[in-house]
Amino acid sequence: MMSRKVFKEAFVCSLPVMMGYLSMGAAFGILLTANTGLNPLWSLLMSLTILSGSLQFAAVDMIAGSLSLLEIGILTLFINFRYSMYGLSLIRRFREAGPRRWYLIFALTDETYALLLKDRPGAGPGDSDNFMLTLAALNHSYWVVGCVTGSIAGKLLQFNTRGIDFSMTALFLVILTDQCREIRNRIPALIGGAATLLCRVLFGPDNMLIPAMALILIGVLAFRRKLDPPEAERGGDRR
């Protein structure tokens, strides 16, 4: 039985994510409608089952475009690989959550992960599972509501939407700008950008992604010595 106190704590904790998910979800929904014409039920399905902002934005293009299902799978692996790192620090906590962990694992977004890492002063013993579950479900619901609302709004909007797909570029630029505040992310970002640009020139817009991903992997492995100094020099960087 969940106490009101735990629900209230999780709700307050989730408020910043609520703002972000409702607005970014709405932006996704509007873009999905403008670019593909798919109805809001598709937006509902995607937000319920994928629950990944950057992938869903990229999916708008993948769905409309020329990629095969295999390429979509490889691209998904590449874009979302970071999620597998999040789980590493949560293995013990989630194991204690019993069967609920299967949902907690599914709902592990960037934002939910960040909130789960925060300290909870005054938390009672044994309510940790309820707190995590409530927080994850609240964040998931904000995302679904945002995406569907955006899709419905996209159907109703009657203005010239030419150029609205730049919101996808803008989203990735925002994420990249945030990442590049940390110096250790700058060379990987540079490798990613340069490799993709090269593959765009060599292979053209429709066949650039698979070679780009291969080249990026080769690139980051080639720079491993420089980017991955021995344990002692890295300091408090590890999760």
Binding site: R82, D165, F172, N185, P188, A189, L190, G192, A195, T196
Partner: peptide, 19 residues
């Protein structure tokens, strides 16, 4: 662990160019 640390900025930069 190494790939996990560096792949995210590289993938996002790739998506910017892809866009």
């Amino acid at each position: 662990l190494y790939i996990g640390r560096v792949i995210s900025p590289a993938a996002i930069a790739m998506l910017v160019i892809y866009c």
